[in-house]
Design a protein around this nucleic acid. Structure first.
Lengths: 352, 352
DNA sequence: GCTGCCGCCTAAAACGATTTAGGTCTGATG
DNA sequence: CATCAGACCTAAATCGTTTTAGGCGGCAGC
């Protein structure tokens, strides 16, 4: 028994063993060209007996396709990177990695230099760019280099570019949430504030716009609290609440970090949630430790990563670029009429 | 201006432009062989002018090294996979991916069949196996195929195997935690229970052993509640607490999911934490939504993934296999003497 | 019988790098 | 001058695959 093979068996070994040329073997394995049925069968039999598996590096060299996709975050030096973006980025990576492997792709969590150049070892077939800003150099460079691009977040590219976007429709979701909060509000009217980060990516911008539009429509003042670079979220939250506790009875947060900052600051000020202050957030309601007192615009970043990967791979396999609107679902806070509900985090719902 | 190059520039282009052979160019870029200083300089200049970057696929073909590492979870079909292992696995992937790219590696979140065969497109140079069981087929197959392996969790391999382990020392951490809880306990003696999952991987086994040993030493009965396959964690938690509320005044949980189940069940039974019941858990204390009422044996899975990747890559680069003891730090529950402390999740500490 | 076609197959050229074995100088040494 | 060593460089093989262009029979149609 040669259970331990000295050498990886290659197409040549199969060809030799089947008394045939490598070209034919290749054709058999790729269902190309014309091969007599008898030959095809013989090749496959010999191949499986020898344990032949086509070597991907050889194929990659020949085809120029590495089947590796990169994931880059647009702005990694941001002061809030560690606190905020990093966890999101990680989940995107994980989701994309798991999805990618099911299609035979690997991933590379690439870094990029300021001019948009991406440094990886293996050449990338395509790139997922997380939260690009308008005219993002990473996106533009990648397109220029002929790589397919999928952005997580909206992006305006030249028509004809090999680019698709995956993003949630905030213009729809934000008013939905604000209306929901208004319905639940102890006092009318709802006077919501918005708590955003320092980056002006599409997600932030479209959320702000949508929020402002709602405020205008409903005749209440808008109040956007923007985290200064370097400022701790809790400090910004304290400022927001302290400065306007009599004017604001709800806060929508752009992510879980800011949301936690708000709930912490609220506790310090003796504000009960959702009684005195309704809190909502765009984020993953199913995460371990999701706060039952806040309402979620639920977006699962792992799922986002998977969708990005799927979309990009479809493009790489020849499908036309097709942007995807990611679903956002509104998950209300646990019913506040039940005061016995534990204030502590509960287990995640079983289904999703 | 030919800002858009039709073709990727290859070693041949550089060679031709420098009036020299490809062999020399290769030597220059690899610091091998003997090359005159003048030639080296000229090659580098021409190379950078042309924007030459050695093609990794070509190198991979020649060298037989793909610079791709796989991450496989040992037992994916487990009933508790989605609830429990999946989040952990994701974090491992993310940590490994980010670490890997800094060393020029890509990752593949591989699946595996029951016999231990790993299916990926690109061939793997090495594998990270998460939570292997003794004699794990994935580990054994990979070693037999000549791949370097790093396990997250202890593993007994044949001496001389290209294997290193990364794991936390539960024999040390568990008694530390139990002693800590005993010191904080309202009533003596501490009568802790242990809440574990259905899998008997090294992490679970060594935790149980260590727990039992502590109980024996301290003359209290041990009570290990094991989640049945298919059972909801909250149900198991309810059983555990209902059956033994008078006998148990502390519970240590193997992961956050179980911990949440315990706190939920405790709330239902009207048990206050940590007053009536002290709760501790092995997991990431810095995660968003970490519960301030429970004590943590802090292990950051992202960090674990990074360590695994680093260890594996070191092996691939020729260093001898070297197992790593991952640090576990005890993070006490927020001080229970301060009843004003918010019961809700607080923001993560700023530093780590 | 010649031509053309079709079905099946193959030789050889890519793809982009590294490495081995050896070639060609130059200058020193006998 | 012949020889040798050393410095520098190159031709060609190699890694494992795919694809192109064409070869070789046999068969049908004229």
């Amino acid at each position: 028994m040669n259970t331990v093979s000295n050498k990886q068996v290659g197409i040549q070994d199969v060809a030799k063993a089947a008394g045939i040329s490598t070209a034919t073997v290749s054709q058999v394995y790729n269902n190309k060209g014309e091969v007599a049925a008898a030959t095809r069968e013989r090749v496959l039999e010999v191949g499986s007996k020898l344990g032949y598996r086509p070597n991907a590096i050889g194929q990659a060299l020949r085809s120029g396709k590495s089947r590796v996709i990169g994931i880059v975050v647009s702005y990694r030096d941001s002061a809030v990177w560690e606190q905020t973006y990093m966890p999101y980025y990680r989940n995107i990576i994980a989701g994309a990695a798991i999805e990618a492997v099911e299609h035979g792709y690997s991933i590379s969590a690439a870094a990029s230099s300021a001019d948009g150049r991406i440094e990886t070892y293996l050449p990338l077939d395509g790139v997922i760019v997380v939260d690009p800003v308008p005219g993002d150099p990473i996106v533009e460079q990648s397109l220029k280099n002929g790589r397919a691009v999928v952005t997580d977040g909206g992006y305006q590219a030249k028509p004809g570019a090999q680019l698709a976007t995956v993003h949630a429709d905030m213009a729809q979701a934000i008013p939905d949430m604000l209306n929901h909060l208004a319905r639940r509000s102890r006092e009318a009217p709802l006077r919501p504030a918005l708590f955003v980060g320092p980056r002006l990516d599409d997600y932030t911008v479209s959320t702000i716009e949508s929020y402002r539009h709602w405020c205008t429509t409903h005749g209440v003042a808008s109040r956007v609290a923007s985290l200064a670079p370097g400022q701790a979220p809790t400090d910004a939250a304290r400022e927001l609440l302290a400065a306007s506790t009599d004017e604001v009875n709800a806060v929508h947060c752009l992510n879980e970090t800011y949301c936690n900052a708000i709930t912490t600051a609220a506790a310090e000020l003796g504000l009960s949630i959702p009684g005195d202050l309704q809190v909502s957030v765009t984020g993953n309601s199913k995460a371990i430790g999701a706060d039952p007192r806040v309402a979620y615009l639920n977006i699962d970043p792992v799922e986002t990563g998977a969708i990005c990967a799927r979309t990009l791979i479809a493009m790489l396999e020849g499908d036309p670029a097709q942007s995807v609107a990611q679903e956002v679902t509104l998950v209300p806070a646990a019913d506040a009429t039940d005061p016995a509900a534990p204030a502590a985090p509960t287990a995640a719902p079983a289904t999703g």
